[in-house]
């Protein structure tokens, strides 16, 4: 497995974390919990953005592994 695909896997994981956090933020009854989940969601968005950049960078470096 190339580093490119590993990073992509992490990106997918992060997206799933993001979605779960979002659904928890919606489903929680307690406001404090809602806010915490929401903030966490925003943080993961930042991380996702960075990771996306990194993925395109890697794809430029190793065009043969350009993702499906």
């Amino acid at each position: 497995m190339t580093i490119g695909s590993q990073v992509k896997q992490s990106l997918a994981n992060l997206k799933s974390i993001h979605a779960t956090l979002q659904s928890l933020a919606l489903k929680s009854v307690d406001e404090q919990a809602q806010r915490t989940f929401h903030e966490a969601m925003l943080t993961t968005e930042e991380v996702i953005d960075h990771l996306k950049q990194r993925v395109s960078q890697l794809e430029r470096e190793e065009p043969q592994y350009k993702g499906k």
Binding site: Q9, N13, L14, I17, T20, L24
Partner: peptide
């Protein structure tokens, strides 16, 4: 699962 996934990503 969420906690586990977050720990895994951090380790990654």
């Amino acid at each position: 699962l969420l906690l586990a996934a977050m720990k895994k990503t951090q380790a990654d």
